[in-house]
Write a protein that binds this DNA or RNA. Sequence first.
DNA 1: AAAAAATGTCACATATTTGAGAAAAAAGTC
DNA 2: GACTTTTTTCTCAAATATGTGACATTTTTT
Lengths: 184, 184
Amino acid sequence: MKNTRQKITDAAIEIFNEDLSAPLEIVAEKAEVTRRTLHRYFTDRQDLVLACQFAMQESCKKAIDAVYTSYTDPLERFENMLYAAIDCGVKFSFLHRMHNNDRHQHTVKDENCKKYDVTFNKFKSTIEELQRKDLITKELSAEWIEMLSTGIVTAAINSEKSGNVAKINIKKFAWYSLSKGILV
Amino acid sequence: MKNTRQKITDAAIEIFNEDLSAPLEIVAEKAEVTRRTLHRYFTDRQDLVLACQFAMQESCKKAIDAVYTSYTDPLERFENMLYAAIDCGVKFSFLHRMHNNDRHQHTVKDENCKKYDVTFNKFKSTIEELQRKDLITKELSAEWIEMLSTGIVTAAINSEKSGNVAKINIKKFAWYSLSKGILV
DNA sequence: AAAAAATGTCACATATTTGAGAAAAAAGTC
DNA sequence: GACTTTTTTCTCAAATATGTGACATTTTTT
C-alpha cells in the first residue's frame, strides 16, 4: 500500500517527466490529493523535485545493484541490467534525461550527481568489460553503447505506454535489437 | 541569416523541448530578444507553441520527403532517412514526443496530426517494405522497429549534445547499431 | 540624411501559481 | 465511542507570469 508521500512523488515523476514546470495543482490532481495536502509534505516545488530525484535514484540504484551483484557473466549481467532499467520505467529515462540536460537542478549537483554516476557507471563498466573480453564489437565506442542502451530503454518504455507493441514482446525485442546491434 | 521570427521559434523549440511550461522570458532570453519583441511576433504562448510545431513539421517533412523520393532501394532509403532524422535534431525527437504524449496539444490534433502522420508513415512503410522483401528480420514487429529507430535517433542527438561521442562517428554508429539490430 | 521598420525600455493591468493558516470533515486507532 | 491523525475546504497574501500601450532608441532602407 502506497502512502501519501509516495503517491505524490510518483505522480510528480509522471507529470514532471512530461512537463517540468507543470503547476503543482496538476500533480496534486494526479496524486488524488489536494494541493494543500501536497504542500504539507513538500514545502515547495524545489523540495518536491528533489524528492523525485531521490526516489528515482533509489529505485534505479536498487534495481541495477541487485542485478549487478547477481551475475558474474558480463553479457548475462548486461542483459538483465537492460531488463531492470526497463522495469524502472520513466524513473530511469527521466533521471537520465535530468542529468544530461543543461538547464536544470544546477543547484543540487555534486552530492546528487555522484549517486547518479555510481549507478550509471555500472552500465559503463560492464560495457567496457564486454569490450575487453571481445564479447562485443570494438567498432563502437563505449560511450555510444551507453547512449544506445538508454535509447533502447526509452524505446521500450514508450512502446509500453503507447500500447503498439505487445507487452510480452517488449523486453525480448529490446534485447534482440541491443545485443545484435553491439555484438561482434 | 535567420530572421527574428525564426530565432524565436528555434529558441522556443530548444527550451520547450526540455520544459514545455518554461516562462516566455526564458525563451526570449535564449533568442536574444526582449519578451516584448517575442510578443510582437506571437500573440500568446499557444501561438508560439503552434508555430514551433509547424516549424518542426515543415523541417522534418522536407528532410524526410527529399530522401524518400531519392532512393528506390529500401535499405538505402531507410539508412538515409535515419541520417535525415538525426540532422533534424531536437526538431525530430521533440515532434515525435509531442505526438506520443497524452496530455498535450489535444486542441490542435486533426489537421496538425495528419501532417505528422504523413511524414512518419514514410518510416513505417519503408520498414514494412523491408520486411516484405525479407531484407530485415520478421522476428520484430514493425511498430517496435519504428520505436527503435526513433530511440536511436534520440541517442544520436543526445550523443552530439553531450559531446561524449566524436561527431564524425555518430551517424556511422547509429546506422551500425540500427542495421545490425534489425537485419535478418 | 531622412524616413521607415524593428527593437528596446518602462509601466501597468490581469491572470495564474504558490505557500500557508484555521477550522471542519474524514479516516484510523484504541 | 472517544481520541488522534490526516485530509479537505476555504481563505488570503505574496510571488510570478502574461499580454499590451506609449514612447525612446537602434537598425535598415531608400
